[in-house]
């Protein structure tokens, strides 16, 4: 079914102190496709998402078993550079979180930290990533004003531009539209559809219509287990599992 896996988890278990949050998750993420993770609150979908760029390990008391393969290499292996992984796997957060800096500096930051010194090259990349996220026309005259003055939707697109600037291979999105109004949500969804031409995208959402609109594959999680995974159209129309059917038909949530 999935011919070119970009990311794969193998028997992934995650514990937070005494509690087991993820149970034996095996999921395959196709390259340059959009994979949605759905499920009720607390099912572990955001936790799973943050495993893909090792952001979970910032929380004291988190323990992980199993493997996550990125292009066939286990990112949890000893000796893997977490900085390198995070530059290859970007993350967009639920709440837009631009830095309290100018619009331009928000994008330039990741590049400068990565060692890029050439100013004109940085401006070029900044412009390109703002064009790619559809922000350029809206902000080109005020690149050096504070990013915090942008609207919520613009902030979120800036965060996406910031992630794109360092040219990741995979983009993780953690309910990227839950803090936005319908119009801004529409723009982000459009953007996701465009971005999948160049990037592998994993999006967590509790909006099932959104999963239906933007994703090629969908995984349904419940109580830390991957209940069902498959082609989005099939999963939403002919789910194999009773639990999936109950969830997508709105019988619990």
């Amino acid at each position: 079914m999935i011919t070119s896996p970009k990311v794969e988890t193998k028997n992934l278990n995650l514990y937070y102190t005494e509690n087991q949050v993820l149970h034996d998750v095996n999921i395959t993420i196709a390259e340059k496709k959009v994979t949605a993770l759905i499920g009720p609150s607390g099912c572990g979908k955001s936790t799973l998402l943050r495993c893909f760029n090792r952001l979970n390990e910032l929380i004291v008391g988190t323990r992980i078993e199993g493997e996550i393969l990125l292009d066939g290499k286990n990112i949890y292996q000893n000796g893997m550079d977490v900085v390198d992984i995070r530059r290859r796997v970007g993350l967009i957060f639920q709440k837009p979180n631009p830095f309290p800096k100018s619009i331009y500096d928000n994008i330039a930051f990741g590049l400068k930290i990565g060692g890029m010194k050439n100013k004109s090259r940085i401006s070029e990349i900044a412009e390109k990533s703002l064009i790619d996220t559809g922000l350029w026309e809206e902000v080109k005259d005020r690149l050096h004003t504070s990013a915090l003055d942008l609207s919520g939707g613009q902030q979120q697109r800036l965060c996406i531009a910031r992630a794109l600037a360092i040219e990741p291979e995979v983009i993780l999105m953690d309910e990227p539209t839950s803090a936005l109004d319908p119009a801004a949500t529409f723009k982000i969804e459009e953007l996701v559809t465009q971005l999948k031409n160049s990037y592998t995208i994993i999006i967590v959402t509790h909006n099932m219509q959104q999963a239906g609109r933007v994703s090629d594959f969908t995984g349904f999680l419940y109580l830390g287990k991957l209940i069902e995974f498959g082609n989005t159209n099939i999963l939403f129309t002919r789910p194999k599992e009773k639990l999936t059917e109950n969830y997508i038909s709105g019988r619990f949530g």
Binding site: N53, L55, L58, V83, D84, I85, R86, R87, G90, L91, F93, K95, N97, P98, F99, P100, F109, G110, I113, G114, C159, R162, A163, I166
Partner: peptide
């Protein structure tokens, strides 16, 4: 806010 720090870590900083 921890959002800023997380955003920075997520950029590989």
């Amino acid at each position: 806010p921890k959002d800023f720090k997380e955003a920075s870590y997520a950029l590989g900083v």
